[in-house]
Design a binder for these strands. Structure first.
Lengths: 270, 270
DNA sequence: CTTTAAGTGAAATAAAAATTTCAATTTAAG
DNA sequence: CTTAAATTGAAATTTTTATTTCACTTAAAG
């Protein structure tokens, strides 16, 4: 055996050797497998206390795995943290600095999309309001029929939402304007129904017209859009403002999709 | 002024005081604003070298901002890293431990979806192969017409892909089976065309039948699916296996959407 | 020009952290 | 049981890291 050069390797080695280790070394092994954070940041003394062993045992553990000292193990975990976080936070700047060259190959584009989407997810989770979500779920739950509206860019999200809602047993209709019957479809919306509209800049005109006319019928409205200034916001009972990630001028959809899916699952769990 | 208790505060203080700082302290200030990683992990000596100041200047800097020493500043940055990473990596276990209660309210569901999606993004970015992506982009680029197939669960992704490809000027057709004309639509696929199919378990039967028949016509095929064992994989020129996140039994779509969007943007940049 | 205050950096010191040592304890083998 | 080998942990030591000191430099005020 030779000293591991990354966490995955080390973890594999620990697993295979676990049974052959002494009692105290097993304690350390368990701790090492389960406390990545602590390993990266805490001092040997702290780690020793938390794992209920004397500091010297940590050094013995390290040597049992061919390291020169426990500090080598700590370095491994710090390195891992650096890689993990640079790939999703500080890497932004790196991309921007040399995106003239890098954004022309598919893999960097994919990685950049993955990064901005991940960031958008984080933002969505942080900014979402419990109150709004609950209200939206209640409205959907009490509605007789659910109508979904999303045109052009938002069509795919609307289509997904329709599919998912039907799967959890809700009467759901997608206003797709098929056969030129947009108005006819919309005229079916009644007082006990709800209209969920998805619209991003540039806001489709049909969506604006429809949300306004529906609000006069007394049906409930839920809006998913990209700005508080959106022309739709005014007519809604609940309005979700979603910040999508983008690469260059290409906006993503992942955050809206995530929101929409969460609503459906929450509805299913009610 | 009193010592900052988090990075944001410290950064704000640095910004307002920047002009009043001495030359060397400004150097440190710049370094502190731009090198979060280094601040969390490196020793004072290392940081001093990288910022081109003697170590004592770092301590002076810290004291200028009311800290007892520079180590206090390092702790701030470490704390921040801990919080950032626990929110998206170690939190998994926490969720699993008490998901019996938590997955019944909308906000935790949303947060859990955000987390698994973020993870799926990370995985996608890590596992994607440059070679496959380039090949796929080339096939799309050389195709006369692009046909998109995605039924049921995959329909929304297929719809988005169709929308996006048309926006970057490709002749694209969505095989939606509208008007019961699935076979008629499919029969238009010619030798110089490409069929991009998206299919997840349970794989729609129509998709399987179509991919097989198209492969006999000599058209190129690109597949996006969720397993190497997928019945579609056999017929493809390029096959992307995407690992989607899921909450309970509800699978997400974000990773596929991200992949699809990356392909379109890469194509646009060609 | 002084003069004085503020700023700077190399080297010394202090503090903290990691590692080693060694006597004590436990375990396994005869 | 007895004995040898392995394991353990408190304390000592070494090494690393952070902080302070003080002579020197620079810049500003009179």
């Amino acid at each position: 055996m030779t000293a591991a050069t990354n966490i995955a390797q080390l973890q594999a080695q620990i697993n295979t050797q676990y049974a052959t280790l002494s009692k105290r070394l097993q304690q350390v092994a368990s701790y090492v497998l389960e406390n990545n954070q602590s390993l990266a940041f805490d001092t040997i003394a702290t780690i020793a206390t938390q794992a209920n062993v004397p500091p010297s045992t940590l050094i013995r553990f390290a040597k049992a795995f061919e390291f020169s000292g426990f500090n080598e193990i700590k370095k491994l975990f710090r390195q891992d943290l650096i890689e993990e976080t640079t790939s999703y936070t500080d890497r932004a700047r790196l991309y921007k600095e040399n995106n003239t060259t890098s954004l022309e190959k598919p893999l960097p584009i994919l990685q950049e999309f993955a990064r901005v989407n991940s960031e958008a997810m984080h933002q969505l989770a942080t900014q979402a309001s419990e109150q709004q979500l609950t209200l939206a779920v209640n409205i959907l739950s009490n509605a007789e029929n659910i109508y979904i509206l999303g045109l052009r860019r938002s069509y795919s999200t609307a289509a997904y939402l329709t599919y998912a809602l039907r799967h959890v047993g809700r009467k759901t209709f997608l206003l797709d304007g098929l056969g030129g019957m947009f108005d006819e479809q919309a005229s079916m919306i009644g007082t006990n129904d709800v209209l969920l509209s998805i619209s991003f800049s540039p806001y489709a005109k049909e969506t604006q017209v429809l949300t306004e006319s529906v609000s006069q019928k007394g049906a409930k409205q839920i809006i998913i859009t990209d700005s508080k200034m959106s022309p739709l916001a005014a007519w809604s009972d609940v309005c979700f403002v979603v910040n999508e990630g983008k690469v260059d001028a290409f906006r993503s959809q992942s955050a809206s999709l995530c929101l929409v899916q969460s609503l459906v699952v929450a509805l299913a769990f009610q």
